[in-house]
Structure formats: structure tokens, C-alpha cells
Design a protein around this nucleic acid. Sequence first.
RNA 1: GCCCCCUUAGCUCAGUAGGUAGAGCACAGCCAUGGUAAGGCUGGUGUCGUCGGUUCGAUUCCGACAGGGGGCUCCA
Length: 653
Amino acid sequence: MLVFVDGVAVEGEFATGFELVRAVGGGAEIIALEHGGQLYDLSATLVGVNEVRTVAAASKAGRSILRHSAAHIMAQAVVDCFPGTKYAIGPSTEEGFFYDFQLPGGARFDLAELAVIEERMRSIIGERQPFIRQEVGYNEAERIFFDQPYKLEIISRVRGAGGTEDDLREAGGTEMVSIYRNSERFVDLCRGPHVPDTGYVKAVKLLRTSGAYWRGSEANDQLQRIYGTAFWSEGELEAHLVRMREAEKRDHRKLGAELDWFHFPPEVGGGLPVFHPKGAYVRYRMEEFSRKQHLAFGYQLAWTPHIAKAALFERSGHLGWYRDGMFPPMEMEGSTYYPKPMNCPFHILIFESQPRSYRDLPLRLFEFGTVYRYERSGTLHGLARVRGLTQDDSHIFCTPGQLADELARLLEFVLSLLRAFGLEEFAAELATRPDKAVGSEEDWEFATAAARSALEKTGLEYTVAAGEGAFYAPKIDIHLTDAIGRRWQVSTLQIDLQLPQRFELEYQSPENTKERPFMIHRALFGSVERFLAILIEHYEGHLPAWLLDEQVRLLPVNDASAGYAQEIAGKLVAAGARVTVSGAGEPLGARVRKAKIDRVPYLAVVGPQDLANGTVGLTRPRSPEQRGFPLSSFLEEVAEAIREPQLQLEIGQ
RNA sequence: GCCCCCUUAGCUCAGUAGGUAGAGCACAGCCAUGGUAAGGCUGGUGUCGUCGGUUCGAUUCCGACAGGGGGCUCCA
């Protein structure tokens, strides 16, 4: 018999996955099989199956099998350590796994107990308990789980022919349910698949506890959740933990406070940052640079207020579809005003303030517009998720014929501006028509094709997220990868089919007819606040010198060197640098330490020897110092580092 | 919004088995003029997040609320 394994024909008859894996010369790198769109244990029967795909241990699916198995091991450990514990559900997640429990007497886990549970898990792993799958009827299942109310609930839900995806994942089917047993003591309702035995889980770590309601509803029991993660090797786990610590070190909330850049006064309100002088300076540089580039690239500036009457947002549709995301209304002189959640309606008013000709198009409006959005308190996260944010927002009005080119030049502009901030790794995502969408098929088709051709023109790697578009428009999202490999969504380009229609926008065509323009919404940084957060984390607080209010700090070794320091400062200032001199009021070591904590990009110690030789003692971020560095080279290097980046653009205006 | 955890000096944190608190850093003054991540001495610093309850007495115990953190959820 011929069996197709990953598309390759193999001669033979295989009772189980183990036999097949052996036959194709595979080993532990294959952890499960897939056929008929389902994943199966290696121990599952293969009789009558003639086409399978192997699931690599290292693949995403392979890792979630591992982590799901680790969740079972954790549940067994918890039941061992806390007899009488009821266990609920325990899936794998993006980065690990969790399991929800109800401890006897409503007890909670504490951190010390996690270590005990982890220790117990290691001994279960050491026992190499096999994961044994069985299919049993409902009555049998109810007998097995007689003292597990959550499992019984899942069984009865599945039995009632209902059952959610989660229920099915736990129970495994609607005729029979599947269970996994991996010792006399522990059995769980589970669809699987699992690793062959507990010994496959080479590295496991419990990370934190939190509360969670059964089935996510506060009307239900309150359970205790433990999060953990697992890997195929200690090395991978260690790398993951290092990455977590690294991310923690880069946390922009911590660095923001340390650098004295911003904070969130409770008196102002959650998600509403105030920027201190140094942080405000960085913002100012980011914004001025961006404004300048926009002006050079054919944009015109716009400026619009923070609030507007309800009628505007009714007309734009925001009150219809976005009301829950808006700050509540204010009354004045019999009118109702709302803080704006977006800038587009205002820019549209500018477009329609006068009759427009095709000669006016494309009309590109640009604004740093601060918008206010209601984000639920639990979702706020430093500058990355706020309630008052400044979008570097633009709206481009163009003819249908201009759309594809306009998108292409826009993409290139976006990428070159992001590159100017030292970011290098990008990926795009084209989000297409969702099921629930407005507008004609033809319009969607046209706009999506324009987006696609723009992406292909720039050669940017992109994926298609089918059905992920806004209900009114396809969009292109730009993601960037930071210095430690995390992906952040930044820019978004949306081709709007709806607003021009709602506002009945028109322009006069060359044929003297009235035509409807296309509109492109575009935020480049996304929001200034969030982009700053990304920069802080990407650079670990060491932002490029051209953005900073203090670029050079000079440290005279003693008072006798103060004159030399002042002389150098004068030259640097003349070259356009922002310089401070930290005089000999305290010991040099202390001043050096402070400069490093403040992350000043250029730190120059000058003393009598430097004065005599025309040198400085130079320290750059995260590099060893260089003593006796020639002053002239230092001046040149600083002049270079503080220069604003130049955009590399192929498409002209 | 929901769950769990946390909230003591500007910051990081200790502490009181219920009798109104302490360290380091920071800050101020004086001394020290120092060659690359904390020089020395002296000094001031707190409604122990807020409100309520229990108690002779609450920073400590209980409750509510606020703020922060970790998750969940949501993100046209």
C-alpha cells in the first residue's frame, strides 16, 4: 500500500504513527500526525489512512501540543499537592499554557506554592507517564469524572448536542468523549493530541497566577489560573526567559520614569500622559521632523479642534458605529459636543469647503491630531495604549485613476520615514473584505487591487489577512520588528469607500462631470505616544542623538579643566549640538554614573592631559570609553550624529 | 469592563503577632578638586492610597472605593 507522507509516496502498512515515523527515518522531531484536517497522536491508528502530514515538534502546532501536555502535567501536580482540587480547562496559548482550578476551601495559590507544583511536575516528567487516549461513552465519562463538576458540565453540554468550540476541544466529540489518562491518579477529558509520554516535556516553568471565572462569566465560580510555559529543551526555555527579562528591562514605562520623560498623574486620569521637558523635547523633534518631511512630500497641513458637535459625528457615522469608543458628550448652549475619536470628519470638511476640481487632486492633508478614545481601564498600557493620543494623521483625496500610484508612493514614504528612525524590519498585511461589509463588490475589488499593486510595486513582503479589513475598506497594516524580535503594528493605510459617500464628496472631472473621490486614511507612526514607546523599547532608552535635548555632556575632571570644557562646549553649540557641562561639584565617578543613567549619547571627560593634547575621554552608549580621543574627530562625529536623517525616496513628488 | 496581586518618604523597599515607623538612594548644608557607574560628615523629610467599620487604641484586622501591575476580553 502507498501512503503519502507530506506529499511523498511511501510503501508500507503502518498500524500507528510511531511505525510510520520510523519508516520515514524520523525521530523525536515529529510529534504528531495530521490527516483529514485533524491532529492525531503518534499512537493513533493509521489503518486505512493513505495520506498524512507530519507535525514537526518545532512547529507552532508542535509547540502547542507540548504545552497542552504540560498543562495536563501541571493539573496532575496540582491535584497531587492539593487533594480535592477540581480542575476546569487547560489549553495552550500563544506563549505557553494555563489551567484553571478550584482549590479545596476556596484557597488561592501563592508564589511559593508554584515552586512546589513545579517540583512535583518535574517528578511526573521523570516518571515518563504515557498519555493514553481512550474513547468512552457519556455514561462512562460521567462515572469517571463523578467528582469533577466542571468536566461533568462540559460532558453534559456536549451531550446536549450543543457545546462550544472550547467544550469540544476538551471533550473531543459529540458521540463519544475522549479522555487522556497518564497515571492511575490522573485522567482528563481532552481532545488531544498529546506527546507520547510526560518525559517529552523537557523544560517547564510556571510563571504567574491570576483569577479567572469559569467559562469567562462573572456569574460563575471564580477559579484560580496558573500560567506557565514549556519548551522542548532547557536552552529554548532559558532563551525565552532571557527574552522576557530583556523585555522587562526595556519596558518604556520604567524607562520613561527613569529618564524623566513623562508620567500618568492619577489626577489627570488613566491613559492620559503628561510629558516632562525632556520627553516633550523628543516628541517635538519627532513631530517637527515628520512635519517637514510631509511638507516636502506634497502634503498640506491642517489643524482642527479637539471637539465638535454631535451632528458632525452623526454625519460621519462615528456615533452610529463607534459610539462605545468615544468619550461621553458635553452640553453647552443647547448643543451637544463630543471629543473627537478621529480626525477624518474634520479633514473632509476642509475638502468640501470649496468646489474641487480634478486639478486639486490628490489633495493630501496632514495633521498631528489629538484624539480621545474610551479604552477600558484594564487595557491601558503606558504610552502604548492610552485614552488621549496624537495621530500623525493624513487623509488623501484622489481620483480612482490615481489610487494605485498614490498608495505606492504613500507606502514608500511611510517606510522611508520609519527607516529614518532607525527601524529596519517591516512586514505588511493586506486586510481584505470582511463578511460584514458595506459597499459594492466592484468598489472593494477595485480598492483591493490597487492596494495589492502598490504592495507589489514597493516589493515589501506581505501577507493577506482575508476578511480582516475594516467593514468600510480594505487596509494595509505595517508591522515592524524591534531589536528583540517583537512585532508591533504601526502604520495603517485604509482605502475608504464610505466616508466620501456619506459626505457626498465630489470633484469636477476633465469631462466636466461630478465624480466621487477616493479617500485614503493613513496614520504613519500610528500615534506619537505609542511610537515613542516603541522607540524607547527598541533602543532600550538610547534613542538616536538627533532626537534628544541633551546630546553631549562634558565632564571636566576638576575646576582647572572647566575652561577647556567650556571651549569645547562652545564649538559643539556652534555646530548645532545641545550640550551641557557638568562641573566638578562632585566626584567624577558619580558624574559619569549619572550621565550613563541619563543615557546621554556622548559623554566626554576632559582633564589636564586632554587640554595638553587636544583630546577628550569619550564614552558612547554601551561601549567602553576611549581616552585620548582627538577633539577634532569628536567634533566631527557629534556633528554627524546630531544631523537629522535624510529620507531615501525613489518616487519623487 | 472582569479576575488575581500590589499601594509605607521624591524613588526602591523593610517594618509593626494592634500602642501613629525605618534603611539606601535622592534632596539641603559643610568639607573633599576627583581621569570614567555611588567621597565624607550633618540635616529635614511621611495624613503608612482614600473613606468607613471593629477596637480603649488601626499603618497593621475587616469592607468599600481609588490608583498601579499581571492576565482575560475588545480593538470598526
